[in-house]
Write a protein that binds this DNA or RNA. Structure first.
Lengths: 339, 339
DNA sequence: ATGAAAGCGCTAACAT
DNA sequence: ATGTTAGCGCTTTCAT
């Protein structure tokens, strides 16, 4: 018997069935519920699959079963490394459970996210993982109307769409302010990114200082992704105008790293002359010169929990609605004075 | 007439057609070839879609048309920022052309990539973008057998699977060696990542020095992704054992940045006492202290060209097979001596 | 443990 | 410009 050798995938489950002398549904079972197939049959079918290089068509499978095994993930910007750990963790965990990731980037724009969502929903994903909680009203309505499980990440909100894994950026900003006030710092400057969550941290930080009677905080806001350059330029600008000693708080470790770099290049001693505080505890933070005091956010954990929550739901585990504040940890290193 | 208000997507094209008083195929045309539909009909159908919140089912569409509008992208590791620009560019360009990205991470393992490929092919992507040219024999065979357009990126190879956009890592390693020899550097050290492409650059670098009679190159290889920490530890180790002046060549800007950081922390002058050379020209390279001499790789361009090549092919533009060496640029900054 | 029939929601390939 | 018909390749459901 001449077996058709081709991975051309003109081949279907029916072709495999014919060659193996079984019905198409049996091939389907071999692929999806091998436990229900007699070992001999299993082997017979698998050999045909092996020999022909047959590759199943999951599109047809998804249509027939109404389950796509696709999870859509929307990230603001792939070039912002703050989300990399989260994204990587999500992709790994889903892949291990035989789900694939459909990727979208929103560019930090809720309107763009909304358009993306329309495209994404047309793919009938089994779940959706979003970054942040700032969506258009239309997006929320649409997502709530579909019965697709949704996980929002990296923020918390009083009325999540569905599940949520994040932390409070307001709490973070306040905690940083209180922490540094307790260290007796009084002359502050703020270098902030202008993305929604960074701005939230910045605002809360400023507000908390204000409540302690500190209103002379020099503030610089940078648009676009945080860079080393912004930190260097930020410190340069501050040095021209602000009295030392100075505590420079940054809403991104990357900017803080730039501040440290500028300080080193000028021979300014950190933390003696200028102190620096970051955000994120990115992988370089413990190894800057001097090591950077910052707030640790466990991005990998966010990703793992988000993926797990989704997978549990997809397994039919409709237990208590998931709403999880993973918090944050202030880490004192040598870029601030530790009395 | 009572219109069924629901985004529940129990709604189909047939429901929309009934409500609009047209045939299903007309709704399909409104969605896919609106130019072929009379304006009045167009508006009628669009109003029903708007009012009902109907979301098309692209799974069914893909099955019927045999085009998924999905492009699979395989990246070694999302947490390695060297690929971020490429990945972001790909995602943006494809999204603009109404293609979605199906993401996979290979973890730098060809075997894992092969398994991923099987899953991916079952989704019937219209195209595949791969990182690197090191694939298992099985992967190559499978990809060649399917008629799916493939673009390999970030490397070149004598026999690409299909299209290719990259540069030669061997040429890069050699060029760095020759460039630094021409600057009269003679005492070299190498800090390298151990990923396939990094190793290729390292090997070629060492080999070129050897051809010039330099065989006493201190070499350290780091596993895992490049980090600042590796650079700091690398320099510390070198200082214990190697004579100065010293030219430290790194196969990653991140490691080089760590070397600069360690030097700054010890008060070692760069480039007077120690010179440093990196790879990638990542966004921080021009802003380290001192600014880092390195090799610029235009990752964004790789992504744009890869996506364009694929889109052209998908448009039926079967012009000359694409094989493009985008090259690299050596950038002299202040971490090396520029006589 | 395996099979037969029906259909998932859409679009290609013809009509008209 | 619009409609009719016949699938796409699989899985569901109900038999046997």
């Amino acid at each position: 018997m001449a077996i058709k050798h081709s991975s051309q995938s003109g081949m279907t489950i029916a072709d495999v069935a014919r060659l193996a002398g079984v019905a198409p549904i049996t091939v389907s079972r071999v692929l999806n519920q091998p436990a229900q197939v007699k070992p001999a049959t299993l082997e017979k079918v698998r050999r045909v699959i092996e020999e022909t290089g047959f590759v199943r068509n999951q599109i047809a499978g998804a249509l027939a079963s109404n389950r796509s095994r696709l999870v859509a993930v929307i990230v603001p910007m792939l070039t912002n490394p703050i989300f990399s750990d989260t994204f990587q963790a999500i992709a790994e965990k889903l892949a291990a459970a035989d789900y694939q990731v459909l990727l979208g980037t929103s560019g930090y724009q809720a309107q763009h996210e909304q358009e993306l969502l329309e495209v994404i929903l047309s793919r009938r994903p089994d779940g959706i993982i979003l970054t942040g909680t700032l969506h258009t009203e239309d997006s929320r309505k649409r997502l709530r109307a579909t019965r697709v499980p949704v996980v929002e990440t990296w923020d918390i909100s009083p009325d999540p769409i569905d599940m949520l894994i994040g932390f409070s950026h307001e709490d973070t900003g306040r905690a940083i302010a209180l922490h540094l006030l307790a260290k007796n710092y009084r002359h502050f400057a703020l270098l902030s990114v202008d993305d929604p969550r960074g701005s939230l941290r910045a605002k809360s930080f400023i507000h908390t200082l204000s409540a302690s009677g500190i209103n002379d905080v020099q503030q610089h806001y940078f648009s676009g992704l945080p860079t080393l350059q912004q930190g260097r330029e930020g410190l340069s600008a501050l040095l021209a105008s602000t009295p030392r000693p100075l505590m420079v708080v940054c809403t991104s470790d990357t900017i803080a790293h730039g501040v440290l770099t500028e300080a080193a290049s000028r021979g300014i001693k950190v933390p003696e002359e200028i102190a620096v505080f970051g955000f994120g505890d990115m992988n370089f933070a413990a190894h800057t010169f001097p090591p950077l005091s910052t707030v640790k956010i466990d991005g990998k954990q966010i990703g793992q929990l988000a993926a797990s929550a989704l997978l549990d739901r997809l397994k039919g585990d409709d237990s208590a609605a998931i709403y999880r504040d993973i918090g944050f940890t202030i880490i004192d290193r040598d870029s601030t004075f530790n009395g």
